[in-house]
């Protein structure tokens, strides 16, 4: 057989890494087909949901006659917030279902829970990057000129948001195996984050006391980074990539430890 396994020249680590990449790649390809069942409309939904929130809040801002902080254009202001937030939440959501939705795959020894999470996370990240580009692209038709300040900072913010979602998903996935109740309380538990993650405000526009408290929330940091990358005249002094990174490391560490502890409880049917 023309297996890559046999022909790889270098040591164990490279081989292990290649095997893992192969698995994640195969899983990601598969997930693109099954993300919404056989229904291709699912991808349209990924676009419609953020659009719905953006529309709703743009309307509310209009009715309340409230301006955006620093006079940012309303569509990208909301899009940076909503898309980044959705990315974290949907990735966590998909990740938490990784074992339940893919038990059959754990039959193959080289497929591990982490691979399932990484594959789903990569797919969500790609999906929402496209969603963001589409929304901004659509909006660009309505304005004379669009300038994105620093694409790298923007992408970094989205990447960290995706990784944060994967970390959360990994932990939830492990907890799910322990108790199905987790899935039920996840919704109510996460819902407040919608209001405190900076979807419709910036950290800069908050009074210091409130800001210091809300800055414990890593999602706010991600959104601030995306905005800093997008808007030429916005600079979030409080966004700390390292802080988000610490959260991600912590979540992955805890999640992987948990996974190792509960793995034997997963019934491979």
């Amino acid at each position: 057989m023309s297996g890559a396994v046999a022909t790889l020249p270098r040591g164990e680590l490279t081989r292990g890494l290649m095997a893992q990449l192969r698995v994640v790649h195969a899983l990601a390809l598969r997930e693109t087909r099954t993300r919404f069942g056989q229904n291709k409309l699912g991808y349209v939904w990924a676009l419609l949901e953020p659009l719905f929130w953006i529309g709703t809040f743009a309307g509310l801002f209009e009715v309340a006659d409230r301006g955006t902080p620093g006079g940012m254009a309303i569509v990208p202001f909301l899009a940076t917030g909503v898309v980044t937030y959705e990315l974290v939440m949907k990735t966590a959501n998909k990740g938490s279902q990784a074992i339940n939705g893919n038990k059959a795959l754990l039959f193959y020894p080289q497929v591990q829970t982490l691979d399932l999470i990484l594959a789903r996370g990569a797919l969500e990240l790609a999906t929402y990057a496209v969603v963001f580009a589409l929304i901004i692209g659509g909006w660009a038709f309505t304005v004379p000129r669009v300038r994105i300040d620093d694409l790298l900072v923007l992408m970094n913010g989205l990447l960290l948001a995706g990784l944060l979602g994967m970390g959360l998903g990994l932990v939830l996935c492990g907890l799910n195996v322990l108790s199905p109740t987790v899935e039920r309380i996840r919704g109510p538990l996460f819902r407040p984050l919608f209001w405190v993650s900076g979807l419709f405000f910036t950290a800069e526009s908050l009074p210091k006391q409130v800001r210091d408290m809300l800055l414990y929330n890593p999602i706010l940091h991600c959104i601030e980074m995306v905005r800093t990358g997008f808007f030429p005249d916005y600079h979030a002094r409080h966004a700390e990539p390292m802080y988000v990174g610490a959260w991600i490391l912590g979540l992955f560490f805890f999640g992987l430890t948990l996974e190792r502890r509960v793995r034997h409880k997963v019934q491979l049917t």
Binding site: M1, S2, G3, A4, V5, M18, A19, R22, V23, H25, A26, L27, L29, R30, R33, T34, G37, Q38, N102, A104, L105, Y108, Q110, V111
Partner: peptide, 19 residues
């Protein structure tokens, strides 16, 4: 995976085994 065809499942397995 029940929602994928036999062919798609075969593709997946071939990929994870690097064949």
């Amino acid at each position: 995976n029940g929602s994928l065809s036999g062919e798609e499942n075969s593709r997946f397995v071939a990929r994870i085994y690097g064949a």
